[in-house]
Design a protein around this nucleic acid. Structure first.
Length: 868
RNA sequence: GCGGGCGUGAUGGAAUGGUAGACAUACCAGACUUAAAAUCUGUUGGGCGUAUGCCCGUGUGGGUUCGACUCCCACCGCCCGCACCA
């Protein structure tokens, strides 16, 4: 009997309606049915009990308006983990919320009227409505948006406690200022030195702003990275570089003639070993000395103002030429002689001391500067072999490479930069010239935004008392609703009845702070809030102690630095202010960064050669033409989805044509989760067909009636292997491999000649294994097979170890490392017997041609290699 | 410039020192059909050969090893992150 003939009766035209009723894979009906059943059973509510917990979290979305297929991939991955852990006996916390403050809401209000609040909450409703049909195992009872006063009020409480603990302060800082929109712009909002909305030339302006003291924790944040074993190496490295620890020397060059009360310039350098090569001092245009000099030097003031224009973007800085202004002042060089003091556009005020010594021979920037302004170039070391003086390229070998030192103050001859630096710091400290100092590139986190749609900073400015924290009982400081966006600038500044308020300290008239918080603040502690989203304090320590930390965090790699670093800072800050228990300093135990969903772009060109984009449904892929016009299309594969390129796939369309399970299965299949996955119409279609095949197979198996037979054991073995391999794939975040194994197992089951009961048992296991990926279909099959309760509540299957080991194995035989033959042997056959069988193999004998092998390597149970 | 990653059939990918190409897509062929679709079955890395078979093949060149997609060195190409950080 063949597998094919054993399948149930095929539906002929006559009995079509009957068959349709029983066996049709009706996704709309099946998915709605099971989602309702889960809701009814309140299956996803996270509850505390004696059982172990598992907290799985996907980065919450910004409510931009519609969900994207990329969101589907992100949440499906989390859902696979969540459902797998639920079936494995864990209390699972799998919440969802909205990162709801931010500029797009205000921009929408400016562009088309309306209110940011309405825009945001409407978007949330739409997106929640799009997410629910996906059948995610989310505890919706914990949902919140960061723009809920209930949430941001607690954030204000947190802010006040951090202020109290000295973790927040105010200082002047240079920012990108858009003079038309009258607001501070983030670096990424500056394009070619112009504001991205207004097109106005951006200025660098100094404003008093609020800062979190993240730099205080630089060392701890760096240290903590080593414990994050389940984070991608890449992300840890990016954070390490961002923190940017360096060791150097801080020293003062005395002014030859003190001016404006300054008798020295303090300099920081990581290359004190090149001190002898110093040929000038360069200070930042914002350096106090430069500012003092500018007061009575119009040319200098003009230079500083000119340099300040053009923003602080990377591109602007990269293109900027090295420019300097000679102050005419000099400092004394401790090694003898004097050095001229210049103001230079490439020296940053907020790193180190805002002043450097220039060593043109061993720094390309300094060399460019020296050549331009005709300053000396002094070699301090040369290559050990054929060393030659620096001409047009600075000599900057790795610090680990040994070089020959010329007339070094510490008397060094041949040694590495590393060793020379250490020696010079010791030497300088002994001579009292300076002190060794550790610097971090990480700067304090400026959180002030001159914006309406953000969390108000809960302080009041009083003429008498200064900056006064709002009283906790007055929280939340709620955003006023009656604002307009028809005038540039921050509406809070213009809203007098909101802005003017009595001082919480003395009661006299005072003004509220009108800056709001950076939206990164909102997302820096939401994971903690999810453990007790309705608590009257930022967190509930008992709940936090049970649920924290996040066991698996999943999101885009674009948040590798800022969001994840800020969250790590906040977890520490919340610990210090008593809002999180011990052991939560690293809030995300494991991190997974998933790839994007991409889609081909179909384009033609207009008569001017500009690209014209076409929707996938408008092109014919066989002939590679546009259906309507017959023009030949260019296909750009694997491009990031973008509305303007017309290659966006709307999850809702997919769900309505194929169902949620198809969308979920597709985004998990083929590509490894960390890599991009290409959405193709044929792939989606094929996925649907496969699920329909599984459904039909289940229908057939439910009806079939065949006696137990010898094939039952084979099927049991295949089942055990499937359990083992699918589980391994899920545990190892290789969902594509689990999907492949499920295909394979389905094919095996389909072709199996096993008896009805054996096939039913295998089908039940298949339903269990598919459940994390395609939960609706899995529940449907589970119930068709007579399974009890929900498949989700059924303990995850365990592979019988006895069935995983094969008694007889096919042992490959290699000749000189190439597979030429194979041998069927029992798994634990002694090597001597294997050797005899190998040597008796006809192909081996032919190759040996009567001779003896040079060597015979037997790897028991794996392979044999005959070396001739 | 600095740091990191990747390179395997027509395509997405599998194999992390042991049978390269699992699984899927696409293509082709066959069955069913008046026909098409759907469904089912099968083939498909390249070359030589009637064939048992043989040779080549994981970006390129070299090395280590009985054995290399996998480890090491050099190069080429692509991608990502950071960057006047002294």
């Amino acid at each position: 009997m063949t597998g094919a003939s054993a399948r149930g009766p095929r539906a002929g035209p006559g009995d079509r309606s009957m068959t349709a009723e029983i066996s049709e894979y009706d996704t709309a009906r099946i998915e709605a049915k099971w989602q309702a059943a889960w809701d009814q059973a309140d299956l996803f509510r996270a509850t505390r009990s004696a059982a172990p917990k598992y907290y799985v979290l996907e980065m919450f979305p910004y409510p931009s308006g519609r969900i994207h297929i990329g969101h589907v991939r992100n949440y499906t991955m989390g859902d696979v983990i969540a459902r797998y852990k639920m079936s494995s006996g864990f209390n699972v916390l799998h919440p969802m919320g909205w990162d709801a403050f931010g500029m797009p809401a205000e921009n929408a209000a400016m562009a088309s009227g309306g209110h940011p609040k309405d825009w945001t909450y409407q978007n949330i409703d739409v997106m929640r409505g799009q997410m629910k049909p996906l059948g995610l195992s989310i505890d919706w009872s914990r949902e919140f948006a960061t723009c809920d006063p209930e949430y941001y009020g607690q954030q204000q409480a947190l802010f006040l406690d951090m202020l109290d603990a000295g973790l927040v302060y105010r200082k002047n800082a240079t920012v990108n200022w858009d003079p038309v929109d009258m607001t501070v712009l983030a670096n990424e909002q500056v394009e070619n030195g112009r504001g991205w909305r207004s097109g106005a030339e951006v200025e660098r302006r100094e404003l008093t702003q609020w800062f979190f003291k993240i730099s205080d924790m630089a060392e701890d944040l760096l240290d903590g990275l080593t414990s994050l074993k389940d984070w991608p190496e890449k992300v840890r490295l990016m954070q390490e570089n961002w923190i940017g620890k360096s060791r150097g020397l801080q020293m003062i060059f005395p002014m030859t003639t003190p001016v404006h009360g300054q008798d020295g310039i303090e300099v920081y350098t990581t290359r004190p070993d090149t001190l002898r090569g110093a040929s000038f001092i360069a200070i930042a245009p914002e350096h106090p000395l430069a500012k003092a000099l500018a007061e009575d030097n119009a040319d200098l003031a003009a230079f500083a103002a000119d340099v300040r224009k053009g923003g602080t973007t990377e591109e602007a800085l990269e293109k900027a030429e090295k420019r300097g202004f000679d102050t005419g002042l000099t400092v004394d060089n401790p090694l003898g002689g004097t050095l001229p003091v210049w103001i230079a556009n490439f020296v940053l005020m907020d790193y180190g001391t805002g002043a450097i010594f220039g060593c043109p021979a061993h720094d390309q920037r300094d060399l460019d500067f020296a050549r331009k302004y005709d300053l000396p170039v002094i070699d301090t070391f040369v290559a050990v072999q054929d060393g030659h003086p620096v001409t047009t390229e600075a000599f900057t070998p790795p610090k680990t490479e040994a070089v020959r030192w010329l007339d070094h103050p510490t008397g060094l001859d041949i040694t590495t930069g590393q060793a020379a630096i250490a020696a010079t710091i010791d030497w300088a400290e002994a001579k009292g010239l300076g002190t060794g100092k550790t610097q971090y590139r990480l700067r304090d986190w400026g959180l002030s935004r001159q914006r309406y749609w953000g969390c108000p900073i809960p302080v009041v400015h009083c003429d008498a008392c200064g900056v006064v924290p709002e009283k906790k009982e007055n929280l939340p400081v709620v955003l006023p609703d009656d604002v307009t966006f028809d005038v540039p600038g921050n509406p809070l500044d213009r809203h007098l009845s909101w802005r003017d308020t009595p001082c919480p300290n003395c009661g006299k008239p005072a003004r509220r702070e009108t800056d709001t918080m950076d939206t990164f603040v909102d997302s820096s502690w939401y994971y903690a809030r999810f453990t007790a989203p309705r608590a009257k304090t930022p967190t509930d320590l008992d709940d936090a102690a049970y649920w924290m930390n996040v066991d698996q965090y999943i999101g885009g790699v674009e948040h590798a630095i800022l969001h994840l670093l800020y969250s790590r800072f906040f977890a520490r800050a919340m610990g210090k202010t008593g809002h999180l228990p011990q052991g939560t300093e690293e809030p995300f135990k494991a991190l997974f960064t998933q790839g994007m969903v991409t889609h081909a772009i179909f384009q033609t060109r207009d008569d001017k050669g500009r690209p014209v984009y076409h929707l996938p449904e408008d092109v014919d892929l066989d002939s590679k033409t546009v259906r309507a016009t017959g023009e030949t299309i260019e296909i750009i594969p694997s491009a990031k989805m973008s509305k303007s390129k017309r290659n966006v796939v709307d999850p809702q369309d997919i769900i309505s044509s194929y169902g949620a399970d198809t969308a979920r299965w597709f985004v998990l299949s083929d590509s490894p989760p960390e890599r991009d996955v290409e959405w193709t119409a044929s792939g989606a279609e094929a996925t649907f067909k496969h699920l329909r095949r599984v459904h039909r197979l289940a229908t057939d198996i439910a009806r079939a009636d065949r006696a137990a037979n010898a094939a039952d054991t084979d099927l049991a073995r295949a089942t055990a292997r499937a359990i083992h391999e699918v589980t391994e794939g899920i545990e190892g975040f290789a969902f594509n491999k689990s999907v492949a194994k499920l295909y394979e197992f389905t094919n095996t089951l389909h072709k199996s000649d096993a008896g009805a009961q054996a096939r039913r048992d295998a089908m039940k296991i298949l339903a269990q294994l598919m459940a994390p990926m395609t939960p609706h279909l899995a529940e449907e099959i589970w119930s068709m097979m007579g399974g009890e309760g929900f498949v989700l509540n059924t303990p995850w299957p365990k592979a019988d170890p006895g069935l995983l080991v094969e008694d007889a194995i096919l042992l490959p035989i290699q000749i000189n490392g190439k597979k030429k033959s194979e041998l069927s042997v029992s798994k634990d056959m002694p090597n001597a017997e294997v050797e005899a069988l190998v040597l008796g193999d006809t192909i081996v004998q032919r190759a040996l041609n009567g001779g003896q092998p040079k060597k015979l390597i037997i790897v028991p149970g794996r392979i044999v290699n005959v070396v001739i």
